[in-house]
Design a protein around this nucleic acid. Structure first.
Lengths: 127, 127
DNA sequence: ATAGTATATCCGCATTAACAGATATAAGCA
DNA sequence: TGCTTATATCTGTTAATGCGGATATACTAT
């Protein structure tokens, strides 16, 4: 029996690969960079800071939620997202986000978030 | 000026995303799992343990080398590979490999490596 | 019930990436 | 020099994935 015949052992490995795949996109890294300093954010905050369409942001957030990296909850019409501390590989995620926080782009994003908050606490209308 | 207009800041972020992309494939994770316990291995050892073709193993090793995650050197006809401790995100890699080492598949791969060594110290001929 | 706002999902398009076989290249030995 | 062995690269195929616009769904206010 070859080493890879035990399909049962492959599944956790593939899930772990998917975990890294979730972090393998600049957009999702930037989202996580923002979520690591803010308890919760809504989709339009991401839209503004990242300069991306609503559907793009929504899909990436769904991706991260599907991988169990973020949790979400709805308050009225607003969705809130936060990093999930119960993820099996949370230590890896934490180390990854520490490294991410030192990147200039991540600092720039966070500055953009602060600027956002100073203008309004609510989402601005779409234009 | 929007937050993402500073292309100079995006490059390190994209490189970091590529780093995670290198870890986002089960085959490459298994390769790194083996390299984290063996100083150096050659292509046919990977072929045997992973049950993959020579070209597939060679390409994945090239991918990891391109990302600066492994280093390689040639001794005669044999190539040797090792994890690169000088990678900027080595801490992240180390944490990732620690988590990986707890997965059953990784343990199984390492057992397969030991079995390989006990049979022969040299690569067996292709059949 | 309807309109407004926020979010989720679908669609078509374009790009990326993994696979093994075939082939090219490099090093060592007779 | 030619053969053997090890490794790198190319090729065609298949599958996966990101994008924004359009549209569907959910919640709130009137």
């Amino acid at each position: 029996m070859t080493n890879s015949e035990n399909i049962q052992n492959l599944k956790p490995l593939e899930e772990y690969a998917q975990f890294h795949k979730a972090l393998a996109e600049p957009v999702r890294l930037r989202i996580l960079g923002l979520l690591s300093i803010e308890e919760s954010l809504c989709v339009c905050e991401f839209m503004d800071v990242l300069d991306l369409s609503q559907s793009t942001v929504s899909r990436h957030l769904a991706y991260l939620k599907n991988q169990g990296i973020v949790v979400s909850w709805r308050e009225g019409t607003w969705m809130h997202y936060a990093v999930d501390k119960n993820h099996p590989a949370f230590d890896v995620l934490q180390t990854s986000l520490s490294f991410l926080s030192e990147l200039e782009q991540s600092k720039e994003d966070r500055s953009g978030l602060k600027g956002f908050e100073s203008i309004t606490k609510q989402c601005h209308p779409k234009t």
